Simulated assay, not measured.
Amino acid sequence: MKPISVTLTCLLALAGCQATPDRLPQAEPAPSATCYFPSSSANTQAVLRQSVAVLTEWGFELDSTDTSLGLVSASREKALHGYYDPYDNAYGYGRGMRMFGGFGIGRGSGIGIGLGFGGGLNHQPIEVERVSLLVGDRDVRISRDLRRYDHSGDLRESYSASNDDFCRRFQAVLQQTSTPAGNAP
């Protein structure tokens, strides 16, 4: 038997171990039911203005808006002081420092040595929180996600954060701002 056919047989055997996904990617965890609620006003533009006011009051910066679609997208960043990166010590280089290097000897004459330190100075791990609102004629939908980046700017964690707590607080503040001061209960 030729060596090429053995290698090809091994590659085909390994390729057969690959599994195809049984479902399409989904937001996990699934968005809370409270992130979809009826609009307190029939005027979509008024709800959009109130939503923007709530988000900017909470420290978000507008990324994009499309009033014809009723879409608002905003984000905010915060430094993560003392953030533990679970992957930082994965290869034995130590926490907070990355060291890349190696050496080699080539054919004939030549030696090469490389050494590098990474991480940079004054780079903090950050968390980016993004919120998107879709305001329809009768309802409001909220989508929120969190992304954490390490000190060198690499994405380390990303997950859907459309949870019950955030959506209830947003809905309560939105309803308070839409109620006129004279009609407040």
Rank of each mutant, 00 (worst) to 15 (best):
G70W: 00
A19C: 12
Y93N: 15
G104W: 05
G182A: 14
V135K: 01
G59W: 12
A161R: 01
R49M: 02
V52S: 10
E129P: 01
A181W: 04
A46K: 09
S39T: 01
M97E: 13
R23V: 08
I4M: 06
L11G: 09
A30M: 04
G136K: 11
A161D: 10
D63T: 06
D154Q: 15
T56L: 08
P31E: 07
T67M: 06
T20L: 15
Q50D: 11
G119C: 09
R95M: 09
F37Y: 07
S178G: 01
S73P: 02
A30F: 03
P86M: 09
W58Y: 04
W58L: 01
P29L: 01
I105P: 01
R148E: 14
R107T: 11
V6F: 11
F117V: 13
R148Q: 15
P38S: 11
Q18A: 15
G153H: 10
S160Q: 03
N43I: 05
P38K: 08
M99W: 09
V6I: 13
Y93Q: 14
P185I: 08
A46P: 00
V72N: 01
N122F: 12
G182F: 04
T177H: 03
F166A: 05
G110L: 01
F60N: 06
K78I: 00
E57C: 06
L8S: 11
D165M: 08
L115P: 05
A181Y: 03
L69D: 11
G70Q: 00
D145G: 08
P125T: 00
R138C: 07
N183G: 04
H123K: 01
R76S: 01
E127P: 01
I111P: 01
S178F: 01
F166H: 07
Y87G: 06
L24A: 14
V52D: 09
S40E: 02
T20G: 14
S68R: 14
T65L: 13
S109H: 11
S152C: 09
A13S: 14
L133A: 04
V72I: 15
D63N: 03
S41W: 02
G102R: 05
N43S: 05
R141L: 14
W58F: 03
C17I: 13
Y84F: 10
T7Q: 06
G116V: 04
G112A: 15
F103L: 05
R169L: 11
I142W: 02
K2A: 12
L174F: 00
V6N: 07
F117G: 06
V135R: 00
D63L: 04
R168D: 10
D145C: 06
P125N: 01
R107D: 12
G106V: 12
D165G: 08
A53H: 06
G96P: 05
L71Q: 12
A172E: 04
Y159T: 13
L174W: 00
R156G: 06
N183M: 11
K78S: 04
S162H: 02
I142S: 02
N122D: 14
P86I: 11
P180T: 08
I142M: 10
L121E: 09
H123D: 03
R144H: 11
Q176W: 04
P38R: 10
S152E: 14
Y91H: 15
M1V: 08
D145Q: 15
A15F: 12
S40L: 03
T179F: 03
C10F: 10
L24N: 09
R148T: 12
S75G: 05
S73R: 10
N89A: 14
T56D: 07
A46R: 11
